[in-house]
Write a protein that binds this DNA or RNA. Structure first.
Length: 289
DNA sequence: GACCAGGGTAACT
DNA sequence: AGTTACCATGGT
C-alpha cells in the first residue's frame, strides 16, 4: 500500500470559489473531507489534495497540472461574479441563494462517471450514493494509493466493467439499479453509446441518446448534460427542485413539465447555475419541507 | 413498522 | 396524456 506524498504544491488566489460549497453541493460524489479547510478528491484517474485559506488555495500538484487539468475541472476561468449578479437581479430567493452559496462552481466531471453515478442516485440519499460509487470503484477501479489510512481507487471505465454481471452489481447493494448499470455498460461496450462523440452534439440530441439507456430519464440525462457536458442552460428537475419551485414560485410540484417550461423561460441560459444555487441553498436550509 | 431518499418503468385509466 | 404501484436498500 503506497502512501501518497503530495510533495508538490501550487498556491493561487481565486475569487468566487469555496471548496466545501463546490464539493458538498451535491454535484459530485468522490471527495473526502480531511478537516474544515482541506479535501481529497478523486477524478481523472488521479488523487488530489486541496486546501483553502480564505481566497487562497493550495493544490497539491504541479502548476502545470493545475493549469492543464484542475483549472478547467473546477471551471475556474468562468466569471461567476457576473453570473451571480445576473441571478441576484431576478428575485429575492436567488439573491439569498447566491449570497449564501457564493463559492459554488459547476464541476466538469467525466461523462461516464457522471452517468453511472446519477443512475445509482435514484431514490437514494447523497451519503448512500457516495457509498455506492465508492464500492463500485473499490471493486473494479484501479488502486491509486493511500493517504491517512484510506485507500483511493479510480472510477472504473466501461471496458473494466465489461464482464461484470447483474448479480455482481447487486452484491454491491445497487438493488434495482443493477439492470440499469448492466445496460449502460453493455451499450458503451457495443459502441451504441459513445460519450466522447456526444460531447460535441446538440443538447437535445444528447438527451435523447442518453435516455435510450435503461433507467435514464430526463433528470439523469440533464445531470450528465450539466455536470459533465457543461450544458449550463439545462435545469435538472428532481424531488428537491420540485418542492423548492413550489415553495419559491408557487408552481404545482407534481407537474414536472410545467416546472421545466417555467425554468426555461425564467432562467434562460442560466438555468443550470440557478438550479444548483437553489438546490444547495434550499436543501441546506431544509426549505420547502 | 411506516415513510422517504438528487427516478424511471410499466401498467393502468 | 396523465396517474400510480413498484422497484432494492438504508436511515430515521
Amino acid at each position: 500500500m503506497s502512501e501518497i506524498e503530495f510533495h508538490k504544491k501550487y498556491k493561487i488566489e481565486i475569487n468566487d470559489f469555496d471548496l466545501k460549497q463546490t464539493l458538498e453541493c451535491g454535484q459530485c460524489f468522490r471527495y473526502q473531507k480531511l478537516d474544515e479547510n482541506s479535501y481529497i478528491i478523486v477524478a481523472r484517474e488521479r488523487v488530489l489534495k486541496i486546501e483553502q485559506d480564505n481566497n487562497f488555495f493550495t493544490f497539491y500538484t504541479s502548476e502545470e497540472e493545475f493549469h492543464s487539468i484542475w483549472e478547467d475541472y473546477f471551471d475556474l476561468k468562468n466569471d461567476y461574479k457576473a453570473i451571480k449578479n445576473l441571478l441576484a437581479e431576478k428575485d429575492e430567493y436567488l439573491k439569498k441563494a447566491v449570497e449564501e452559496k457564493h463559492g459554488v462552481r459547476i464541476i466538469k466531471q467525466e461523462p461516464w462517471e457522471t452517468l453511472i453515478s446519477f443512475i445509482l442516485s435514484q431514490t437514494k440519499q447523497i451519503p448512500h450514493i457516495m457509498a455506492l460509487v465508492e464500492a463500485l470503484s473499490k471493486a473494479y477501479g484501479e488502486y491509486l494509493g493511500s493517504y491517512m489510512g484510506k485507500e483511493y481507487y479510480s472510477f472504473p471505465g466501461f471496458e473494466k466493467l465489461k464482464r461484470v454481471s447483474e448479480e455482481e452489481y447487486r452484491a454491491l447493494k445497487t438493488g434495482f439499479r443493477a439492470v440499469y448499470l448492466f445496460d449502460a455498460v453493455k451499450r458503451a461496450n457495443e459502441n451504441l453509446l459513445d460519450l466522447e462523440e456526444l460531447r460535441t452534439k446538440e443538447t437535445g440530441y444528447i438527451r435523447e441518446e442518453l435516455k435510450k439507456i435503461k433507467g435514464v430519464g430526463d433528470k439523469i440525462a440533464d445531470c450528465v448534460l450539466l455536470f459533465a457536458y457543461s450544458r449550463t442552460e439545462v435545469f435538472p428537475t428532481d424531488v428537491w427542485i420540485k418542492r423548492l419551485m413550489a415553495h419559491f414560485y408557487a408552481i404545482d410540484e407534481s407537474n414536472t413539465s410545467l416546472i421545466s417550461k417555467f425554468a426555461e423561460e425564467y432562467f434562460g441560459e442560466l438555468g443550470g447555475y440557478a438550479q444548483q444555487y437553489l438546490f444547495y441553498y434550499g436543501r441546506d436550509n431544509k426549505l420547502g419541507k
